[in-house]
């Protein structure tokens, strides 16, 4: 009985939202309300998730496990940020500076590391993937796209050169569209499996 109630909760919620796509004006209020509740639960789950993170590092520090000093950094940084965030007003310049001046250098530097990683990885692509139709077309396309991105080739509009260039630029779109349609199809099946109760990620009983 309990299991049926849980499955019905998932299915009815999903079906109501799905019906909202069909009866957009009639169900707008109800679907809006359900989505608001969903946002609230996602937010709460976010806080619980941060709790997991906090607990993991706290346990590490408490038991003086490997990496406990670094875990202490996480805990201190977290508590200081939460403290500043709640103590100062929402539009505080100091709070913004505190967060952004740590986030931006780290995020941009990680992207810079990615550039180097990808550069080296591209040099050994054939070793990684072998001579396949896909790897060769990948290389050709990457090379052409990099050249096109430099904007050295600028034939006059209306000429045959410009038309061919446009054609080459649009060529990757075909594969992209195919991949996107495929992923959407897979997504449709995944979503339906949850709505029909075939997949039940919310259950804690096998």
């Amino acid at each position: 009985m309990k299991r049926i109630i849980v499955i019905l909760t998932a299915s009815l919620t999903g079906l109501t939202i799905l019906a909202g796509y069909f009866f957009q004006t009639q169900l707008a209020n109800l679907t809006g309300l359900l989505i608001e509740w969903g946002i609230l639960l996602v937010g709460l789950a976010g806080v619980i998730g941060v709790g997991y993170l906090f607990k993991m590092h706290l346990v590490r520090v408490a038991h003086w496990q490997k990496g406990s000093l670094l875990s202490l950094i996480v805990l201190v940084a977290f508590l200081v940020t939460v403290g500043i965030g709640f103590f100062l007003p929402p539009d505080s310049a100091f709070f913004r500076n505190w967060v952004l001046n740590i986030q931006i250098p780290v995020e941009t530097s990680l992207l810079a590391i990615l550039a180097v990683t990808m550069l080296f990885a591209s040099l050994r692509i054939i070793r990684t993937r072998g001579w396949t139709l896909m790897s060769v077309s990948f290389l050709i396309s990457a090379l052409i796209s990099l050249i096109l991105n430099l904007h050295y080739l600028n034939p006059a509009i209306g000429t045959a050169g410009a038309e061919w260039l446009e054609f080459v630029r649009r060529l990757p779109l075909a594969g992209l569209r195919g991949i996107l349609i495929g992923i959407a199809l897979g997504g449709l099946i995944v979503g339906l499996r949850v709505l029909l109760g075939m997949d039940r990620p919310y259950e804690d009983e096998s």
Partner: peptide, 26 residues
């Protein structure tokens, strides 16, 4: 390893469902 709270909660549920007894999500 999950990158969001929702994923962690669902993963915990799945893990608890399989490892019924004596499972520690930590």
């Amino acid at each position: 390893a999950a990158g969001t709270g929702e994923l962690s909660l669902f993963a915990r549920q799945i893990l608890c469902g399989t490892y019924q007894d004596g499972y520690s999500s930590a």
